[in-house]
């Protein structure tokens, strides 16, 4: 497998890897480093890639594991993640302005979810993966995925309602 073949296989999901890394690691720089590192790992193991039926799912699993490792080492060295880089890109209309606050709110709420729920929300609601694929990527049972996803969705909604009614009632 040469470089262009490799890129053909790998490029379609590079943004997904990046977004997942960012979801877990929060900062853009960290996520960029992680993405670079992951693609380098994939490149080194390019001979084995042909054996995997679903390279994308494999890459997502790798991303998840790598980010968990990074987070662990972060906690060990007692660093906290601070994010200040949430940027919105191209929403079509002035809707953008209207949405900005609320969209930011959702982002913060997801940030406060447990890691696993964060992952599942990212994979399902943002990247729109099948449940089967998510089960494979995270090595979880379908019911467990559904329960976590349902919990995450409900938490986000309830928090939004809470914030929305704050000061009104």
């Amino acid at each position: 497998m040469n470089q262009s073949d490799f890129l053909k296989v790998v490029l379609p999901f590079k943004d997904k890897v990046f977004r997942l890394a960012k979801r877990l690691l929060v900062s853009t720089e960290e996520a960029e480093d992680a993405t670079q590192e992951l693609f380098f790992k994939l490149w080194r193991n390019r001979e084995k890639l042909a054996d995997y039926k679903n390279v994308e799912a494999f890459a997502m699993t790798m991303t998840k594991n790598y980010c968990y490792d990074r987070l662990k080492s972060k906690q060990a060295s007692n660093l906290t993640l601070v994010h200040s880089n949430y940027k919105e890109k191209d929403t079509s209309l002035d809707k953008k302005l209207e949405y900005r606050d609320s969209v930011d709110q959702v982002h913060r709420l997801i940030e406060n979810l447990p890691e696993q729920q964060k992952l599942i929300i990212q994979l399902r609601d943002v990247e729109q993966y099948d449940f089967d694929e998510i089960c494979k990527m995270l090595d979880m049972k379908p019911t467990a995925v559904r329960v976590a996803l349902s919990r995450a969705r409900k938490t986000i909604r309830e928090e939004l309602i809470k914030q929305h009614n704050y000061g009104v009632s």
């Binding site: 990046f18 977004r19 997801i110 943002v126 939004l160």
Partner: peptide, 17 residues
């Protein structure tokens, strides 16, 4: 609230490496 959630999901899909 769902409008906010889906709007967020939509925008975060656009982020690229």
């Amino acid at each position: 609230e769902y409008q906010m959630m889906f709007a967020y999901f939509q925008t975060s899909q656009d982020e690229t490496y």
